[in-house]
Design a protein around this nucleic acid. Structure first.
Lengths: 211, 211
DNA sequence: TGGTGTGAACAACTTCACAGCG
DNA sequence: CGCTGTGAAGTTGTTCACACCA
């Protein structure tokens, strides 16, 4: 394989392959062909092979891919072979839902702190070992607990300020659930998650492709 | 404008434009140019003009777009000028978070029923006017309340069965938050929302573009 | 033999550049 | 004059088709 820029779409798909491989592994499946994996996750076999080829040669000609090995390799590519330390800001319902979503931990994302600006929420405990902390503690805690990723589930008007505080405290990646674009300095990565966009998409398809 | 297939990416962006226009409208902004809107939502001006051109001529040459009118037109294109009737299945934390997320209602998505298989949850009330109903009531309620969209926030192993029941009951669109691919008959639209995918993407970018 | 890895063809989407109009 | 609408150019991503190898 050569050293190429990887399409973002490829990365998204690797994430999908990883989930299906993980299911297959749980069912003790040893080997799978690109055709079968494609079937499984509703994609094109050539696409899977090409996606993987960006990173190396993982398959065996005439055989397919060893499930365990491929899963390991993909997880390594995606950076899931390490544990990521995450803080969440804004313990509303969405915040709580994310904090207690088991799949994140399985993938190596560990929530090690939760903050809220509302004094009424501060001190509440979440799950086994999290307690809602005041915003004032954010800089110290982010440093102490070596937090790398910040999740913003605060209300939209507060999102930019929260982002600023997270970045100042040393966070290098931000996942923003608030419905506003936030600006961050060079070198920090922001991803925007927009739940209403998914609805809008569905509604549009239902309007047009139907009835 | 001609009658062309609309790129899915265009639809996603319209959704974004709608949000920013709505903010601009709230600030009493009357007119905006494609260049300025592009700046606002971090996109290319030509892209915005082209996206809009798929559906008609909404701008005024030498002037720009009237915010209110454009917002109205985009909402109409996306099917947001009607009210969508939605049922949610699986009242876990994520389910509750979605049920109480105010932005959905603003966009015209109305949760008119919530179901759960767990008898302990049945009967609990959610917000002002929702009560968790047993799965057995699903067919009747979906019909009675003319529900068009189903949200699946049930655990992964139950997702396919929930989808089947929703579709049988008459739902034409499904938004699936469970981390499994679900199959539905021709004519029903499914969208898959995958939260760990967003994390994986962020992690990958942090791994590669940094440090 | 059967399934990978990959160049080459194709398709989709984005950006440019500018004519045309208010 | 300024900004839209849009063909044409450019870029990116997907699929095909087959050489090649376990």
């Amino acid at each position: 394989m050569k050293f190429l820029k990887i399409p973002e779409a490829t990365i998204k798909r690797l994430s999908v392959y990883a989930r299906y491989l993980s299911n297959l592994d749980a069912q003790d499946r040893r080997v799978i062909s690109s055709a079968e994996l494609a079937e499984e996750c509703g994609m094109n076999a050539a696409q899977i092979r090409k996606d993987l080829a960006y990173f190396g040669e993982f398959g065996v000609r005439g055989v397919g891919y060893y499930v365990k090995d491929l899963l390991f390799d993909i997880r390594k590519i995606l950076g899931l072979n390490k544990s990521w330390r995450v803080a969440l800001v804004g313990v509303g319902r969405l915040g709580e839902a994310l904090l207690s979503y088991g799949n994140f931990v399985k993938q190596g994302y560990h929530f090690v702190a939760a903050f809220d600006a509302d004094p009424a929420k501060v001190g509440r405990s979440i799950g086994r070992d999290l307690e809602v902390l005041p915003m004032a503690d954010l800089p110290r805690i982010v440093a102490e607990r070596e937090i790398e990723i910040g999740i913003i589930t605060a209300p939209a008007p507060a999102a930019q300020e929260v982002a600023d505080r997270l970045v100042t405290a040393g966070v290098r990646g931000v996942l923003n659930f608030a419905p506003v674009r936030i600006a961050v300095p060079e070198g920090v990565i922001v991803k925007h998650v927009d739940l209403t966009q998914e609805f809008d998409n569905l509604a549009y398809l239902m309007m047009t492709r139907q009835q």
